[in-house]
Design a protein around this nucleic acid. Structure first.
Lengths: 224, 224
DNA sequence: ACCTGAACACCGTTCAAGT
DNA sequence: ACCTGAACACCGTTCAAGT
């Protein structure tokens, strides 16, 4: 993490880029105005000239990573593209775990922050191509987006715990073992699925969840 | 927010209780060791005697609110109880918006933090009573939990933006109007659902999403 | 217009000292 | 065993001053 000598002039893009690198390297706590100024070989005042505050900087970092994740190849069906977008977001959050709480905050802020609207738009376009009634589009899209965020968030949290040194299979095994040791009276369900936890594949499970929602949307019964 | 004279001795419970009150009143930034010591009429050292650090305090506050939300009356079917638990969590997060990012963090931490396992257990018990194949329980439960968290998180964010003074209908109207003004080429979907956004009911939409997943689980086709 | 860097207010946490 | 409160290291942000 050697401080870089200032070749080019400072710019909003260079600041955001450096912020993403710091976040990727050390998580939320890796990004402070001290680490940032050191990395960019400048002072805090210079950064405040380009960015109004730290929140805006986090927003910009989030937007730049998500925008890249939302561009996926054309698929052979809307369903395929929904799977592709979901998986792309899933992987983006997996490799940038700091995105998860950030997205949770972004989710609101009305339609101001451009991130959530873009995700809604990307998935909604495919939902509207599924051939389901127009008055179900909004709800169906919301369900998909919420599921993706929830699932990806959990996964991000896992990969955060894992860290660089920890083996994934090892981690799952330990978690499953811990669940098996829980009080049978209080946690019968967790004990019953411990075996499955040990062997499951995150990505596959994520996609199966999308499948559940797609099945409910296109084939399932509607609520009375 | 008058500082309370110290009647009873300090205890972990009294500290957690005060923390929840401060969080409810002013969100995450409302809880600092200064506001907490002022409220409890004591010094920081006294709090550190009962609680190891701020993270643990937030965990305890989360656990206390979630535990209350997870106790629901017996329903007439597993589906009914799943709806009841989902709605109860939804409402808990709605009235304690600080729960949302906190849950996102809690989600991982292996099975250590007791919160996520309890939610999994509560929903999983009902899923296992649905009569679907045992090897689908884990994935189905995960999908439900992730959906609940994602949806509730969005709603929490909304209610955070709303604040005490802002009208809900007003807020939705403004959001819908903003979406209608977006570039038609870039955001055709958001424009098309603006009307629906204006009139939708959060709680109903949330439950319909649960219905989608339930339908996918019990009736829908499975992925080839 | 863009950058410098000292200074400010505030935060979580520690710890020697009291009872 | 439980509490006090001054002190420490660190944080985001400001702003007068430079170029």
């Amino acid at each position: 993490m050697a401080p870089r000598t200032r070749a080019e002039a400072l710019s909003r893009e260079r600041i955001v880029e450096a912020a993403v690198e710091l976040l990727d390297a050390d998580g939320e706590r890796g990004l402070t105005f001290r680490t940032l100024t050191e990395r960019l070989a400048t002072g805090p005042g210079a950064i405040y000239w380009h960015v109004p505050n730290k929140g805006a900087l986090l927003d910009a970092a989030t937007a730049s990573v998500i925008a890249a994740a939302l561009t996926v190849d054309a698929g052979r069906s809307p369903q395929d593209e929904i799977r592709a977008i979901g998986l792309s977001l899933f992987e983006a959050i997996e490799s940038h775990p700091w995105l998860s709480p950030q997205l949770a905050l972004q989710l609101s802020r009305s339609p101001r922050g451009s991130v959530t609207p873009r995700i809604f738009e990307a998935i909604g376009q495919r939902v509207s191509a599924l051939g389901i009634p127009e008055n179900t589009w909004f709800t169906a899209t919301s369900a998909l987006v919420h599921y993706v965020f929830g699932a990806a968030g959990q996964n991000a949290a896992n990969s955060r715990v894992l860290g660089p040194g920890v083996d994934r299979a090892e981690f799952l095994r330990a978690a499953a073992n811990a669940w098996e040791d829980l009080d049978p009276a209080e946690f019968p369900f967790l004990r019953s699925i411990a075996d499955e936890v040990r062997e499951h594949d995150d990505r596959e499970q994520f996609l199966t969840g999308i499948e559940l929602i797609l099945a409910g949307m296109t084939g399932g019964s509607r609520r009375p």
